[in-house]
Design a protein around this nucleic acid. Structure first.
Lengths: 240, 240
DNA sequence: TCAGAAGTTTGCGCCATCGCAAATTCCGGT
DNA sequence: ACCGGAATTTGCGATGGCGCAAACTTCTGA
């Protein structure tokens, strides 16, 4: 990702033609949609919107990764999920809210389209499939959150971290020689904020797994070399 | 609740006139809606629908409480939330799903209206405010789940249980002499499944709090006698 | 009225995980 | 090439909360 510096894309119809909420539309309609969109290219670690702010725009991630998180009164961060490219986000309107329920930050360099929230209803009535597809997205996110809750309630740290890694390589994995790499820079700290543990514990786990040949990692980079055995860990099967 | 045996209500317009998704409608419209509804009176602990089942109907809780939960492969239960009367539930359609994402069970005696899911779209186009209000409900649930995740990630057991109690008395509390009682039967086990801990730990906490005059409890009944001091506990302030 | 089931309380030992601290490695900037 | 900050690793001690077990209480139904 951040290895390949992004150039500003031309706002071409092909950009959106494979994105679910827009995929049923014809060229003219996509043109209309792009005409009211803004594009931004952001570096890593840049906030797109903050929890509680009035939801004035909604977004679509063209390239890169977005991290959605919340911050506690005590200042601890909890990472809720990562959004891969091709998804809408900040769609407060779809859940009847007028403020953003969480903060979102770029997890890598990213290219983002956005529209003023007021065109939402217009899109919903004018473009067939737009509303229903975005509700599906909401449904998926709810499902993920649900799983997250069950996971945190019933599994222990090792399994949670293994799960998080697998989810990351599923959603954002890139094949490299020797395994599948998480496609954006991620620290032990980040991983700990995704799994409700500490960076120390994550570090210990990764070290142990590296010794056993399950993963290999550098600074801010993690490659899963043996996804299959990692799956076993998730089920609570001890890795010998 | 279960102390006052419920009688089957007449399907009267006034039943729905104060329920958000229907509150903007006139009598004739509510009449139409009731005409296609079924009513059921259920005892405590009865399943309304099961996770994964095709979402053939959606529901509205007229009286009582519903517990929404998931069951892990290992058979552990995790209680996601409680629904108070006056809310729609099982609204898979609103999140673009065709199966229920969780199991729901009556937490008390309950009276439930339901409609076949196929009338959903009809309601959405025909009745002003129906769709937008249900999306708000979805938004609220997402907010609650989010909070739950943050809570489990950052707080320890004592705070989580205190939080759960406060949430319960806010949503379902009933004033009694000496405090606010949770309005449906709830066991230590239930509370532990809401807070990702064990019934033993919950029992110990309640005992300790009872000694300090924060709560009083009998079998399946919990009364919060000093909500204010319980709030302090949530913030991590040690009791006395 | 009694027996069994269901729910609750409490003690005790253990261990997964945290918290703190210190050392080490890596990387970007000048 | 070097310096300083960021990220990572690892050790060690403390402990919150679990798991198991046993006793007790409260309900329900026959």
């Amino acid at each position: 990702m951040e290895d390949t510096p992004k150039t500003m894309p031309r706002l071409d119809e092909s950009l959106l033609s494979h994105v679910p909420p827009f995929s049923k539309l014809d060229k003219r309609q996509i043109r209309e949609i792009l005409d009211v969109a803004s594009v931004r290219r952001l570096g890593e670690g840049v906030a797109v919107f903050e929890e509680g702010a009035p939801a004035e725009r909604f977004f679509m991630l063209l390239d890169g990764y977005i991290r959605v998180m919340r911050i506690t009164p005590a200042g601890e961060q909890v990472i809720a999920l990562h959004i891969p490219s091709g998804q809408l986000f900040g769609i407060a309107k779809a859940i009847g809210r007028d403020t953003y329920p969480a903060t979102s930050v770029t997890a890598s360099e990213a290219i983002i389209l956005s529209w003023p929230m007021r065109v939402w209803d217009e899109f919903a009535v004018r473009y067939d499939g737009f509303a229903s597809e975005t509700y599906k997205t909401v449904g998926q996110r709810i499902g993920e959150m649900n799983n997250r809750i069950v996971e945190m309630a019933t599994q222990q740290v090792e399994q949670r971290v293994a799960n998080a890694l697998l989810r990351l390589i599923n959603q954002t994995g890139r094949k490299v020689e020797g395994g599948i790499e998480i496609d954006f820079p991620i620290t032990r700290q980040d991983l700990s904020e995704m799994t409700a543990t500490t960076l120390h514990t994550v570090s210990r786990l990764l070290s142990a797994w590296e010794k056993q040949g399950l993963v290999s990692s550098k600074r801010k980079r993690i490659t899963v070399t043996d996804p299959h055995r990692l799956v076993l860990l998730c089920r609570g099967v001890a890795a010998n």
